[in-house]
């Protein structure tokens, strides 16, 4: 994919060229949105808003990493979506069990190679981690998602979150520490090697 050529064509009003970029980056953008928002419906909304916004602001793109530029737009869209949902809480349209528990969409949880027990364990662990991430304040959550989940370096996270490098460093440390504390509540779910303290200490 010739990214620069697609950007140039999109700037000339070619929507198909822009959609080429959308299809290339939508998984990364959605992954970030999902981890920041914590649920698929909100992540989809934020994602769609981000791509529309990116198309309209494309003339403001001044070179550099297009991925970082897109991720900055999606994190802003996530903040907007979070505020909107705080004003008007939305009940997620997800299937529920008889007990009222939401059934996770198996689309991304499914691991063909794992046994059903492993899959359940994995799903529970993921849910626990996501719950701890979602419990963080937005500013800490974003940095943690960008660095620890998306695997970006501090520099890129600093550009995307629009915060100095030192702030990224301190926010990340605090976010990790808080998730670590939070995960203690999900002790049983953690695989042995990830248990953070010895059994005797508990």
């Amino acid at each position: 994919m010739d990214e620069q050529a697609l950007i140039q064509e999109a700037l000339d009003g070619n929507l198909d060229a822009f959609n080429g970029l959308v299809l290339h980056y939508q998984d990364i953008v959605y992954n970030v949105a999902y981890r920041v928002m914590g649920e698929p419906g909100a992540a989809s909304d934020a994602c769609q808003e981000a791509f529309i916004s990116a198309y309209q602001k494309l003339h403001q793109y001044r070179g550099g990493s297009f991925k970082s530029w897109l991720l900055r737009i999606v994190t802003n869209a996530c903040y907007d979506e979070l505020r909107r949902r705080q004003r008007r809480p939305i009940t997620p349209l997800l299937p529920e069990t008889d007990d009222g528990e939401i059934v996770e969409d198996p689309f991304w949880i499914e691991d063909d190679q794992a046994s059903p027990e492993k899959q359940t364990e994995q799903a529970e662990l993921e849910k626990a981690i996501q719950r701890c991430i979602s419990a963080l304040e937005e500013k800490f959550r974003t940095v943690l998602v960008l660095v620890d989940i998306e695997g970006l370096d501090y520099e890129a996270a600093s550009q995307i979150a629009k915060t100095p490098l030192g702030t990224v460093k301190s926010r990340l440390a605090r976010a990790r520490s808080r998730v670590q504390e939070c995960l203690q509540d999900f002790w049983e779910l953690l695989p042995d090697i990830f248990r953070l303290n010895d059994e005797e200490e508990r």
Binding site: F107, W108, Q122, E126, P191
Partner: peptide
């Protein structure tokens, strides 16, 4: 350990 999610 948490899997990457794909765009639905």
């Amino acid at each position: 350990r948490i899997p990457r999610v794909h765009a639905p």
